[in-house]
Design a protein around this nucleic acid. Structure first.
Lengths: 252, 252
DNA sequence: CGAGCTCTTGATTCTCGTCAAGAAGGGTGG
DNA sequence: CCACCCTTCTTGACGAGAATCAAGAGCTCG
């Protein structure tokens, strides 16, 4: 296992990989109960285990390059990843954040329609698409699940387009916080939930189609209005989820 | 065949339907060679024909309502449809335009994640999802094609998010025109191609996250710069595709 | 402990939205 | 077939919200 430090600009190092193809390792995977894997049978999982490869990634590693040939699918097992699309001049739109259980690679035809970079140390599970195709032949249910996953992502993408095209800065930030809440807690949200946001302001800005300054100002304003409370290490306590919801103009 | 004129606000009438479940009607369908259907075998098409229903729609008819239970898939066979997502206060984001061959309904889980309204008289082919599910069991290839379709839509959605979050008004309009070009001509674009745009300015604005005025001003500016030439009945001649491309900041 | 990211806040600018009005175009009914 | 009306499109004047530019404080990590 070597470090391949191919620097590109200042930004992040390219990725390197590690370790073990193993039978039935999926059974004891930390995301066995989440996302795609939670919907698969034991036999299906065993088949997947045989073609999967676990990969350890440090922070700020690009492991999917935009428009590169799409050779792999990934499943995030720990940490968090940002997905993005960018312009030649460097402007960038983050299209989503992917945490444990999130499946990556559906937004690809021959090549990836997005790039992926870790925002903290993470682990992912990697499958070659060729291997994957062979398995889906055998287990049609797997393909059905992928389609369901893709459908879900399309719905989310539609909502994000609405946000980017039509919401104000405040509405965007409110929507973002509520989105994170749902990600962390599901539908049942506690009284004063605490959020841990691994991404930096700049990433939030790139996700919401804003600038860092605007995100910062908006969060400051929410703080002043007692809607949120910032703690240390990027944690935020949501003091008034209802007021945020009113702000966010949620569709659902 | 009746007209069901259930007015909602001023805007569009609800939809009504017509006619004929028929065996092997797909074989002679006008979109046999386009989109999903072009990738299916004759036997697969025959199976589809049995569960399909052709529907005639006049202009400005909403035939998919946002968040309604997703009971049907559709395939546009003629005309053009706009897909959108909107906020309670009426702000609206058009997420795409669908012409002949376009498959509708993938962006849905239990309910549709979008609404659909015709922008001109159109015809669509309708399948119940339940029927469809039965057929995909029998023909796994069909499901594979749907997944490919969904993947493609996800890539497009990513690009649209980049446009909405990060491009300027001029870049957006240029990207839109080029997108339409590709839609109409494929990859090989003539010297001075002529575009027919069935959608009105307001729809373009809602698609690009702008206002009508900005779209109008931007097109006027392009006209002044001799990049385009407006004809009658919503046709536009692209005088300088290369200059538009430079403006659009295309990723691919 | 210090260099370089982050984050915040202020001042200023500018792009695009809003408001307004008139022209052009299309559809409908007489 | 024409007249009328309503929608669409364009253009101008103005304003607002977010971007840009700038500076300093706070963190992190080597």
């Amino acid at each position: 296992m070597r470090m391949q430090t191919e620097a590109l600009q200042i930004r992040p190092r390219r990725y390197i990989l590690s370790e073990r193809p193993d039978t039935s390792a999926c059974q004891m995977c930390e995301v066995r109960g989440r996302g795609l894997c939670s919907t698969l049978s034991d036999t299906e999982l065993d088949a997947l285990a045989l073609i999967s490869e676990r990969v350890k990634l440090s922070s700020a590693q690009i492991f999917i390059e935009e428009d590169a040939p799409a050779r792999y699918f990934y499943n995030v097992t720990s940490g968090m990843v940002k997905l993005y699309r960018s312009l030649p001049d460097g402007r960038r739109q983050i299209t989503g954040f992917a945490g444990p259980g999130h499946f990556l690679g559906l937004a690809a035809v021959k090549t990836y329609g997005f790039g992926a970079e870790t925002i903290e140390a993470s682990r992912v599970c990697r499958f070659s698409r060729a291997d994957f195709a062979r398995i889906t032949q055998q287990y049609p249910n797997l393909e059905r699940r992928l389609l369901a996953e893709a459908s879900h992502e399309l719905v989310i993408a539609n909502d994000q387009m609405l946000l980017l095209g039509r919401k104000t800065a405040r509405e965007r930030v409110a929507s973002f916080l509520l989105g994170r809440l749902e990600e962390d807690f599901g539908r049942v949200i506690p009284e004063m939930p605490q959020l841990h946001l691994p991404m930096i302001r700049n990433d939030i800005a790139d996700f919401l189609g804003l600038t860092v300054e605007t995100v910062s100002r908006t969060l400051s304003w929410m703080r002043k209005e007692n809607m949120i409370l910032s703690g240390r290490d990027h944690s935020i306590t949501i003091m008034a989820p209802d007021r945020l919801e009113a702000l966010a103009q949620l569709t659902l």
